[in-house]
């Protein structure tokens, strides 16, 4: 390992520009991924907040009997997706409306009769808040004759989840694209390094060095380049995040595990690129 590490470090000294370009390319790739990661993570946070508040409200018919309402409550409580069902009487609804809509208190006060219907607020289990799960529960409730109308925010629920899908897909596609470019560039850099050391490699093969031994310095070189690139990307992403948060709008920083994953991904990209380049050379040698 001493020989491999020494040779890997010597490679940086021999061609610092090439090593810098390779590390820079990985940094740029992972920086873009990092920025989209921040966007995706913040969207996810927003969606989690929205999801926490997702509930289905069933407005009951005025002529629904207490027995009908009780039967419906039992039926809903028995559904696997449902966490809790709360009955809101007409009086409670009016009280809440007066509190939450204080600017209309005069209107509510002048009414001779209560226009608000009684309702059932159905909250769902955390893993049952996707659009399909919510819609299925809403349809089940809407089919009950005691129910006048069902509301569950269908007009925005799909959009929020679509936004999350778009952000995740964009991160994935751009990340893959930039990773591929990084692999090509690092591969080219390693091929140049191999070309510069082709006589050395030929002698290594001549005297009986194993292919693994020949590969090791190049793999280490790729790994180190990738780790440096990954670290630079993490720094650049953090700086951009800091500037955006202090100047434009507040964002949430991505989890440390994501940062560590990004740096390790840089190392993996570098090692993969080197592996491919050396394997090709040894196969042709």
């Amino acid at each position: 390992m001493t020989y491999s590490l020494r040779e890997a470090l010597v490679a940086f000294r021999r061609a610092p520009l090439l090593a810098g370009v390779s590390a820079g390319m990985i940094a740029l790739s992972l920086f873009v991924v990092g920025l989209f990661g921040i966007v995706a993570y913040n969207i996810r946070k927003v969606i989690e907040g929205v999801e926490a508040r997702v509930e289905v409200v069933a407005y009951l018919r005025d002529d629904a009997s207490p027995a009908d309402v009780q039967a419906l409550r039992h039926e809903l409580a028995g559904l696997p997706a449902v966490r809790a069902v709360r009955y809101v009487s007409r009086e409670e609804a009016l009280l809440v409306a007066r509190e939450e809509l204080a600017e209309f208190s005069a209107v509510f006060g002048s009414m001779e009769s209560n226009p608000l219907p009684a309702s059932l607020e159905v909250s769902l289990r955390p893993n049952q808040k996707g659009p399909d799960a919510v819609r299925a529960v809403a349809q089940r409730i809407g089919a009950n004759p005691a129910v006048e109308e069902v509301r569950y925010g269908n007009e925005w629920l799909d959009k929020v989840f679509l936004l999350r899908s778009v952000a995740a897909t964009a991160t994935g596609v751009l990340g893959t694209g930039f990773a591929a470019v990084a692999i090509l560039i690092i591969g080219a850099a390693v091929r140049l390094a191999i070309f510069a050391r082709r006589e050395e490699i030929a002698i290594m093969q001549l005297v009986g060095a194993t292919n693994w031994f020949i590969r090791k310095p190049f793999l280490l070189e790729g790994l180190l380049t990738g780790l440096i690139g990954g670290t630079l990307a993490a720094l650049a992403t953090w700086l951009t995040y800091s500037v955006l948060t202090s100047v434009v709008f507040s964002l949430v920083w991505i989890p440390s595990l994501w940062v560590a994953g990004g740096i390790l991904a840089g190392g993996a990209l570098g090692a993969i690129a080197s592996w491919l380049a050396v394997r090709r050379h040894l196969r042709l040698a």
Binding site: E200, V207, F213
Partner: peptide, 8 residues
Amino acid sequence: AFALEVTG
């Protein structure tokens, strides 16, 4: 020495 070094 190189021939010895690269064969461990």
